[in-house]
Write a protein that binds this DNA or RNA. Structure first.
Lengths: 244, 244
DNA sequence: GAGTGGTCTAGACCACCAA
DNA sequence: TGGTGGTCTAGACCACTCA
């Protein structure tokens, strides 16, 4: 029996199941870190075979939205688990040493979105935003000067204290404090010369070459939720990228 | 019936099929761009079900080693096809304009591997290597200063003419001239200051910030076959990286 | 031992492509 | 129209986890 629904553009069943599962994730039926129902249970619920649910989950697991654990179950991915903290940080020490990440808070102010920010965050120009600046240090040495902008609405109540308390992973904080989970990000890298302010903060001379990382992060449904510009010292670190 | 072979560490059947297919690719039974036998034919050949062959091919397709085309067949991926030329080039114009890539040959000499090159290419220190330098220009403007090192043995006969003729994609040339196909690469990025020689070649001042991309490329079986250092001007271009 | 995800099979049917 | 990959099912059995 074919359960394929009639539709103008063909859409496989497992793809539709994937959408249903994603909606339950957005709706908060299953929260980050929690277990979701077993494949058999979902098969009954959606009235499809276990294999079809399986394909949908496979796809979500490939996108790091769900995590499968044999013998235990399938879990909603989270930025909170110790193991995957800093999942989006591709910068690693050249020597491979483990290092202590520290978060030096600089500022957190209410601002309005300029044209560029409005475009990348898919909000109106002039809409309320929160703007955060901080310095990340590894083993006591300044490493990254971060400039972060998020839309004010989903992050109502965000302030400097929350940034200070989160100690490192903003994503973990977004998740537990505001229920916003980032699932994907795009980064655009350039080499730039340090301006006076950043040079001072990082302890180098003006004009020093820095790795500029412009990142836009997306939550469920490819909705952009954070813009970030990181200026990094790459004397002892490099950005790792795997190509296939 | 379970066809699982007895082995100390458990290995799924489709994984073993994947190895067999990879061996046929290494052995040259199916060459880049060619079609491989249908799933049913392979199922008969390996004495497993079509679904198991399917999983093996799925995995190889996910690694961009094979390309599936519905209704036509499964093909060996190639760097020659126009569509996927420059598959490993993540640098794109900020404006999104299509541009003309050009290859300006600088030098091609026989050298010996130093300790670092020997390590990353998995060859003996002092082993014969070929060392190539070139300048890549986009729309007439210098953009990337490339320094490329490959082991001499698999590329016997490589010379300046071949580099000049290939006009851009070294990988396409490696494939058609030497039967070496790259399937994967690792890149390490840094921001550096231009030294005198590179600054001159790129038409900027000494000390100008450049994006340094150190790349190691691998052929089948994760065998490293090329080391490359690209120094890029990123005023009008950026390096795109997708995180999941 | 019960329950979960993971593998494997066999067979039906669908969407796409080319001749 | 026949062949290819793509989807979907139903059922069996395996590997892993935990009580």
């Amino acid at each position: 029996m074919n359960k394929q629904l009639i539709s103008p553009s063909y859409r496989p069943l497992y793809d539709q199941i994937k959408v249903l599962i994603t909606q339950s994730l957005i709706g908060g039926e299953w929260r980050p870190g929690e277990i979701i129902p077993s494949e058999m249970e979902l098969a009954v619920r959606y009235k499809v075979s276990q294999g079809t649910v399986r394909k949908a989950i496979d796809s979500l697991a490939a996108e790091n939205i769900l995590i499968r654990r044999q013998g235990k179950g399938t879990f909603v991915a989270t930025h909170n688990a110790d193991v995957i903290k800093l999942r989006f940080l591709r910068l690693t020490s050249v020597t491979g040493n483990k290092e202590l990440l520290q978060n030096e808070f600089i500022s957190c102010v209410k601002t309005k979105a300029n044209a560029h920010i409005a475009k990348v965050l898919d909000i109106k120009a002039g809409a309320a935003t929160m703007e955060i600046k901080r310095l990340l240090t590894f083993s006591g040495r300044p490493l990254i000067y971060d400039h972060i902008i998020v839309p004010a609405v989903p992050f109502k109540g965000l302030n400097g204290n929350k940034v200070i308390e989160c100690n490192g992973s903003m994503y973990s904080m977004y998740e537990s404090q505001f229920g916003v989970r980032m699932v994907r990000a795009e980064e655009r890298l350039k080499a730039v010369a340090a301006d006076k302010d950043v040079a001072t903060a990082l302890g180098v001379k003006e004009g020093y070459p820095l790795l500029s990382i412009e990142r836009v992060s997306f939550t469920y449904g490819d909705k952009p939720m954070e813009w970030r510009l990181g200026l990094c010292l790459t004397d002892d670190h490099h950005y790792l990228s795997e190509l296939e």
